[in-house]
Write a protein that binds this DNA or RNA. Structure first.
Lengths: 251, 251
DNA sequence: CGATGGTTTGACCACGCTCAATCAACGTGG
DNA sequence: CCACGTTGATTGAGCGTGGTCAAACCATCG
């Protein structure tokens, strides 16, 4: 299997999302409308670049900003005290994270870049201040958090599935759907995380994930080579993802 | 094992939570402060009684209110189209649910009472209206949603664990912790859901859950009889919950 | 009181984990 | 530029956890 040599002249710039596709867009528009107000200066810092593997913030650190991915991808994980780290979720362009820190004043989880990435930060020092003068801002924030709860709850469905096939299929479809929503190709994309990450996230062994990719490929459901992935039969994958009744002879 | 005959004169009134312990309390105080304002009339409907098994709302129905449990308990589940229903979470006194509907305008999941229950409803028709006049209200709502995101994310950790022991132990501790926060006894309580529900929620077979209860009991970690549960060795349960490295000889 | 549905228990076996070796992809230094 | 080490992905063999099926058991309720 030949790999196309990477064009060295083009730097590995991560996929980026346009502002209108970002979860922060509603907030951004409100901020733009009041840009002349000195109080709202710099509340939304844009395009902070992160190196691969770089930690954005750690669990327990004082909360200072909610973030949105504008390019690349990140993951959040909590370490069960004394135990291994458990990955809680991945963050793709346009998506938010860190909103859980608002109430407690501390980040609940550690977040790290999976590849060179860009994030926008929404700073919260003057939130009350701002909210008192611009209710529209708070309204935006509420809608955004509502969507976030939905997003997180949807993730719950992934690892709760009983069989490894279901979990991986559901995971891939979840990722594909999230790319699709932001206008990226939904059937052909790069999985920025390692198999280790996937297996940890889904509560499986690495080898199982590897074998499942192999199996799906043999069934012509997808084509996978390293991190590049192409979905060939989404309908069948959906079947697998929701298959709860394990038939006696299912092959 | 004798069961104490239930006092027939006292109706099976579910455990209830005091208002100060409820997640809505912050909002309630704001509303109390502006009670004289005609606009905010009836925005918080209290103590709606539900029969066991009664459905509060269904997935897809238009969203009209976020809810808090004030007594009893409920569960939310989504049905994977064409597949079985997957339980997403349980709701205990003082806890919120339904906030995910704010943005989409529809309930994302179906919610049903596990026993005779009471809920408060926070109606959202006039939210914008109210928010424009009382930013404090929106501020409360934002904090509350932040806590909710944290809560839901914590649940993600349950089913992502690799082994059934870890999952059940983590689940029981999660439930115990949630009771403790609201001032209920944390080591002796009733599990309002069936084994079926637990197994579905954790992605296990019913029989496995049953056997694990048995096993934990033999190890003197807890005492279980039907739905009543008493935790004897929380420290050891925590050990199990975070045990990732499966030792060769672990007994 | 019997009917019904949930729970437990047992026997069996397959899915998926463990361990270990191999292979591929990079990055580094000679 | 290639040898080498390192890291991640894959593949294989073996076995244990946990799922399936079935029956017995028990609780709740009409």
């Amino acid at each position: 299997m030949k790999t196309v040599p990477r064009d060295k002249t083009a730097p590995a710039e991560p996929d980026t999302v346009d502002c209108p596709r970002c979860d922060f867009f509603g907030i951004l528009r409100v901020l733009d409308a009041v840009r002349d107000d000195s109080r709202v200066n710099c509340i939304l810092k844009r395009r902070q670049p992160l190196a691969k593997g770089e930690t954005l913030f750690r669990a327990g650190q004082p909360f200072h900003a909610a973030c949105a991915v504008t390019g690349g991808s990140l993951m959040s994980y909590g370490l069960l005290d004394g135990g291994e780290e458990q990955i809680l979720g991945f963050h793709f362009p346009g998506e938010l994270f860190g909103l859980d820190g608002i109430k407690t004043g501390r980040y609940a989880y550690t977040t790290r870049a999976l590849e060179p990435s860009l994030v926008c930060e929404l700073h919260f020092e003057d939130l009350d201040q701002l909210g008192n003068h611009y209710p529209a801002f708070q309204t935006q924030l509420i809608e955004l958090m509502s969507r976030q709860i939905l997003h997180v709850q949807r993730q719950n469905l992934l690892a709760a599935r009983q069989y490894s096939e279901e979990r991986l299929a559901a995971f891939l479809l979840n990722v594909a759907g999230r790319f699709a929503v932001r206008g990226f190709p939904a059937t052909e994309f790069r999985l920025p995380m390692s198999r280790q990450h996937i297996s940890n996230y889904l509560g499986l062994a690495v080898e199982t994930v590897s074998r499942l990719f192999q199996q799906f490929q043999e069934q012509a459901l997808l084509v996978v080579s390293a991190k590049r992935l192409r979905l060939l039969n989404v309908a069948k994958l959906e079947d697998i993802a929701r298959m709860r009744i394990r038939a006696i002879n299912r092959r």
